[in-house]
């Protein structure tokens, strides 16, 4: 029963018992639960969803990856290319903004954007709101968020040495970045 494909608008028969919470891909109309996507309805915990891996626009709390495109004293612009682990088609990137107050959780007023990001850095962030007309607001104020990939002035891939410094393996020079904590530490 559960392995059957449903089409948009098709009623989903629910098992007896408590009505599950409705996740993406489902909706109710006139007290009838229906599908809104082509797929197989599944119960994930207490939520009923029809999941489909497809590129989708970021929403609040989406984890995004993107590269820094522009810096200003107040904010860094981010070109979002991956949303919740799903890459977007090329040419369909969303623009995000990291404001100074969203770079880190402490000493927010001492943040200098130039000491945290450089153009071309790949950054992991979390969307905090849909933002203004043009861009999504992104925060890096968490240990696991920040720059995950950066090249030095010499052109080599740098490695993080502390949460706000990265070292170039070629020249040994230290550059300042707001680094994300590597996952294996």
């Amino acid at each position: 029963m559960d392995s059957d494909l449903v089409l948009p608008g098709q009623p989903i028969s629910l098992p007896r018992g408590p009505i599950p919470q409705l996740g993406p891909g489902t909706y109710t109309r006139d007290a009838q639960v229906r599908a809104s996507l082509v797929g197989i309805p599944r119960n994930e915990g207490s939520t009923l969803t029809i999941s489909r891996v497809r590129p989708h626009p970021p929403g609040p709390n989406s984890v995004v990856l993107g590269s820094i495109t522009r810096l200003s004293p107040l904010q860094a612009m981010l070109s979002i290319t991956v949303v919740d682990g799903v890459p977007l088609p090329s040419g369909e990137e969303f623009t995000g903004v990291i404001r100074t107050q969203d770079v880190r959780a402490t000493e927010k007023d001492k943040v200098k954007i130039a000491d945290c990001f450089r153009g071309g850095d790949v950054v992991r962030g979390v969307v905090i709101s849909l933002g203004d007309a043009r861009s999504y607001f992104v925060t890096t104020a968490r240990n696991d968020l920040g720059v995950i990939f950066a090249t030095s002035e010499a052109g080599a891939t740098m490695e993080p040495v502390s949460w706000q410094e990265m070292r170039c393996p070629k020249t040994g020079k230290i550059e300042r970045r707001k680094c994300a904590k590597p996952e294996n530490l």
């Binding site: 089409l7 948009p8 608008g9 993406p24 891909g25 909706y27 109309r29 229906r34 809104s36 996507l37 082509v38 489909r52 497809r54």
Partner: peptide
């Protein structure tokens, strides 16, 4: 639209 996986209340 259904092929693209865009949520619709019906076809």
């Amino acid at each position: 639209l259904a092929d693209a996986g865009i949520e619709m209340i019906g076809l």
